[in-house]
Nucleic acid binder design. Structure first.
Lengths: 243, 243
DNA sequence: CGGTTTTTTGATCTCTATCAACTATTGTGG
DNA sequence: CCACAATAGTTGATAGAGATCAAAAAACCG
């Protein structure tokens, strides 16, 4: 199944006709991006909508004095800039974490699709809503959890999001972020992140080696992180419509 | 002009026909809420869309151990739960800050309106997008600014959002948040917030008395907060369509 | 293999939390 | 309109989390 289809189907039950319609997206140009390259900068005109086909990316904002905050992760199969189609300027930047590739979809194409296929429109709306929900959970994370809890929470999100798309098993999944990236995502310095990470390891909760994340004790991790996966809206009632 | 109209018109240039169509929303029931009452709790089914007609409200999430984070402010004329219409469960809670009133709009009504009036649909999409953009700026705020900068930034947002709707003048506007609320929004304790506030006052930047906010030195405040209003999307090119 | 990036360590400093009053302000009922 | 209660703001002392700086060790990469 194409990544395009599964990306949309994750958020809505589609009819065969809906699926048929989606094939047109396959004509969208694919753009490859090397690791660490910024694909969209704050202030840019996004000029369309993208779907990350391969690789990982992250959204970030930075302060004039160089401080940087990662405000979200984009995993394979995630759309980005869905909500920006009506806006002329990016309010944040997006960079590839690993070598990546995305479909560049003209807004008109997506809009026509959404107009003619309500269930596809629903999927887009849900996708946007989940992004917003994740943002809010991150706000709670940064505002009210300490470094240890934050990192535990971030790891669980990474694990659960991949589980939902079938990319995690046996308590193990990809995690291509460096400690620097993790620090930028959790709002601490990389030195402090390093120490926090060691603590997680020492307590037998999580291990991270060569870009793989190992959840050693899911329950205890979820407990210390006060993790509740509801915000990710992972209800996988994949009951496909037959009509 | 009705708050309903101005709320939508803030985000899109409407035609007379669009405006006409909006009048149907006026039939939506108005619900009054006393100050400090929670109107929607995490986990609730929102069952519709709301427009805050009067008063202020805030979105928040809390942790099982009682820690609480305010994740956004809702000002008069703001919609809320726009994006939730497809979702069965609130991922966060919403409470009134002051005595408030909102229009409770059935999702179907809004959806029909959006379907038949593309510019209205655009307005909703923009509204949602601005909310997300604000969330991202708050993430930067919590993750990378210190207490002093955060509070300065929050005050500027409060001021600018009210300016945009004509509710601020002479560097002065409403601000019904208590220091406790401000602490919950900036992710610090109320004691520390109090001290930070005194510092802002001492430096001649901001004063807050009897629920009114006085911006004493806008430029310096914007400088220390590294404030850039772009994220609020306040482009007020109110060039109304004549067709 | 040599150079770059990433992770780790130690020492020290600063910001923010915590706890426990106390004061001021606001609101309410008599 | 006053008096009292409740809420909100303020203070001081102390503890703790996280920042900073600088340098070493380890891992990665072409």
């Amino acid at each position: 199944m194409s990544p395009l289809l599964s990306a949309i189907e994750r958020y809505s039950n589609l009819s065969p006709m809906d699926r048929e319609a989606i094939t047109c997206l396959r004509e969208a140009p694919i753009v490859r991006v090397p690791a660490r390259q910024t694909m969209l900068s704050e202030g840019d005109d996004p000029g369309g909508v993208r779907l990350l086909a391969q690789g990982w990316a992250y959204r970030f904002k930075d302060l004039p004095d160089g401080r940087r905050q990662i405000v979200g992760l984009i995993l394979p199969g995630d759309f980005f800039d869905l909500g920006v189609r009506l806006v002329e300027e990016m309010d944040h930047s997006i960079a590839a974490l690993t070598p990546s590739a995305y479909y560049a979809i003209p807004s008109e194409v997506l809009e026509r699709l959404a107009r003619e296929h309500p269930r596809i429109a629903d999927a887009f709306a849900r996708h946007e809503h989940v992004s917003a929900s994740i943002h809010r959970e991150w706000l709670l994370n940064l505002g009210r959890r300490n470094a240890f809890e934050r990192l535990a929470h971030l790891f669980l999100e990474i694990f659960m999001r991949q589980s939902a798309s079938g990319h995690a098993r046996d308590g193990e999944c990809d995690c291509p972020l460096t400690q620097n990236d993790l620090a930028d995502a959790t709002g601490v310095t990389s030195v402090h992140l390093n120490r926090t990470m060691q603590e997680l390891r020492r307590e037998g909760l999580v291990e991270l080696k060569s870009k793989r994340l190992f959840i050693r004790d899911f329950d205890k991790l979820a407990q210390v992180a006060m993790f509740n996966s509801n915000y990710l809206q992972l209800r996988r009632e994949t009951r496909p419509l037959t009509q």
